[in-house]
Measured scan of single mutants.
Amino acid sequence: NQASVVANQLIPINTALTLVMMRSEVVTPVGIPADDIPRLVSMQVNRAVPLGTTLMPDMVKGYP
């Protein structure tokens, strides 16, 4: 099973992602692959992302 990117904390709308905000976890449904975490750094979320939420491609501005 492939690990996905999961919010490690509440991420407010328009926040630029940092490594501490994300963790990898095997979840269903599958979200953004954990391998993409380095690419996500400094990209902004377009909505508030609660703790434990799987990051989906449509939540991150400019992804992929």
Rank of each mutant, 00 (worst) to 15 (best):
L40D: 00
D35F: 09
D35K: 06
T54V: 09
T15D: 03
M43D: 03
T53A: 14
V26G: 04
I37F: 03
A16I: 12
V41A: 05
V45W: 00
N8V: 10
P12C: 08
Q44E: 08
K61E: 13
G31P: 00
Q9I: 06
M59L: 05
M21F: 05
T15R: 07
L17S: 01
I11M: 04
S42K: 09
N14E: 08
R23T: 05
V49E: 02
M22Q: 00
N1E: 15
L17P: 02
D36M: 13
N8A: 14
A34Y: 07
V5S: 03
L51S: 12
T15A: 07
Q44F: 15
P57Q: 10
I13S: 10
T15H: 07
A7C: 05
G31H: 02
M43V: 05
L55D: 02
T18F: 03
L55K: 02
N46T: 15
A48W: 07
M56F: 10
L17Q: 00
A34H: 08
Q9D: 09
A16S: 09
Q44I: 11
L10Q: 12
G31L: 02
Q9K: 10
Q44Y: 14
V30G: 09
M59A: 08
L17A: 00
P12R: 07
G52C: 09
R39W: 07
N14F: 07
V41D: 03
Y63C: 05
T15M: 11
V41Y: 07
P64V: 15
P29M: 05
I11H: 00
I13T: 10
V60Q: 01
E25Q: 11
S4Y: 03
V30I: 12
P64S: 15
G52I: 02
Q9R: 08
V41R: 06
E25V: 11
N1K: 06
V20P: 06
P33A: 12
T28R: 03
T53I: 11
I11E: 02
V60S: 01
A16K: 08
L10W: 10
I32W: 03
T28M: 11
M21D: 03
K61V: 13
P33I: 11
M56D: 04
M22T: 01
A3T: 13
V6S: 03
P12E: 06
T18L: 07
P57H: 15
D35E: 14
P29F: 04
T54E: 01
V27N: 03
Q2L: 14
L19H: 06
P29E: 06
N46H: 13
T18K: 07
V26C: 07
M22N: 01
A48D: 11
Q2N: 12
V5G: 00
Q9M: 14
G52H: 11
G62V: 04
V45S: 05
M56A: 07
L10E: 14
L19M: 14
A16N: 06
I32C: 04
R23W: 03
I32N: 01
V60K: 00
A3E: 13
D58C: 15
S4T: 04
A16T: 08
I32H: 01
P33V: 10
M59V: 06
D35A: 09
V49S: 01
L55W: 02
N8L: 09
V5C: 07
A48F: 12
N8H: 13
P38H: 11
M21Q: 03
P64N: 15
V45Q: 00
V41W: 03
V6T: 12
P33C: 15
R39I: 07
Q44R: 13
A7F: 02
T54D: 02
V60C: 02
P33Q: 07
D58G: 12
Q9F: 13
S42Q: 11
P50A: 13
L19P: 05
V20H: 13
L51R: 07
P33L: 10
V5H: 00
G62S: 11
A7R: 01
S42G: 15
N46F: 11
L55R: 00
M22F: 15
A7K: 02
L51D: 09
M22W: 02
S42H: 14
P29I: 07
P33Y: 08
V5T: 08
L10F: 11
M21P: 00
G31V: 01
N1V: 15
P29H: 05
N8F: 06
A7D: 02
P38F: 12
I11Q: 01
Y63W: 14
D35G: 12
Y63G: 04
A7Y: 02
L51K: 12
Q9H: 10
V20I: 13
D36H: 15
Q2T: 14
S4N: 00
V49P: 01
A3K: 09
Q9S: 08
P33E: 05
E25P: 00
V60G: 01
P38I: 07
V6A: 03
P64F: 07
P64M: 14
N8S: 13
A7L: 03
Y63M: 06
A34S: 10
P29W: 03
P50C: 15
L40H: 01
I13P: 15
M22Y: 02
M22R: 00
A7W: 03
V49M: 05
V60L: 09
G62K: 09
M56L: 12
R47L: 07
V45L: 12
V60N: 00
V27S: 04
R23D: 03
V30L: 13
V26Q: 10
T53W: 14
L40K: 01
T28W: 06
I11P: 02
R23S: 05
T28G: 07
P38N: 11
S42Y: 13
T54H: 03
L17T: 01
P57T: 07
V49F: 03
I13E: 11
M43L: 12
V41E: 05
Y63V: 05
P38L: 13
R47E: 10
L17G: 01
S4W: 02
P38M: 14
R39H: 10
Q44C: 07
R39D: 05
S4A: 03
V41S: 03
V27F: 03
P38V: 11
D35M: 13
V49T: 04
A3C: 15
G52Q: 03
T54I: 10
R47G: 04
G52E: 04
L19F: 10
L10M: 09
P50Y: 14
G52V: 02
V45F: 00
P57L: 05
V5Q: 01
A48Y: 08
N1A: 15
P29S: 04
M22E: 01
M59K: 01
I13C: 09
P12D: 11
A7H: 01
Q2M: 14
N8K: 09
D58F: 14
L51N: 11
R23I: 05
Q44M: 14
A16L: 10
Q2A: 14
N14C: 07
T54K: 03
M21V: 03
A16G: 11
T28Y: 09
L17H: 00
V27W: 02
K61M: 12
I32D: 00
L51T: 13
A7S: 14
A7E: 00
P64D: 13
I32R: 01
L17M: 08
Q9P: 01
R39S: 09
T18I: 04
Y63F: 09
G31I: 01
G52S: 07
I37T: 06
A48I: 14
L51E: 11
I11S: 01
V45R: 01
V41K: 06
A16P: 09
V5I: 13
N46D: 12
T15G: 05
M22S: 00
T53M: 15
S4P: 00
N14L: 08
D58N: 12
L40P: 00
L17N: 01
E25K: 10
I37Q: 05
M56V: 09
S42F: 11
P64E: 14
A34I: 08
N1M: 15
N8T: 15
P12M: 07
M22P: 00
P12T: 07
N14V: 03
V6N: 00
A3Q: 08
M21A: 04
G62D: 11
P33R: 08
D36G: 06
P12N: 08
S42M: 15
V45Y: 00
S4H: 02
P12W: 06
L17K: 00
V20W: 14
A16D: 04
N1C: 14
L40Q: 00
V30S: 12
D35R: 05
N46G: 09
S24W: 09
T53H: 13
T18A: 07
A34L: 03
A34K: 05
S4K: 00
M56P: 01
V20M: 14
M22D: 01
M43K: 09
D36W: 11
M56E: 06
K61C: 11
N1S: 14
D58K: 08
S42T: 13
R23K: 07
V20D: 05
V20C: 13
G31D: 01
V30T: 11
D36L: 14
V20Q: 10
V20L: 13
M43P: 00
I32K: 01
M59G: 03
P33T: 12
N8G: 10
A48L: 11
N14H: 12
T28C: 15
A3N: 15
M59E: 03
E25W: 12
V26Y: 13
V20A: 09
M43C: 05
P57F: 12
L40S: 00
P29Q: 04
P50T: 11
V41Q: 07
D58Q: 09
S42I: 03
L55H: 01
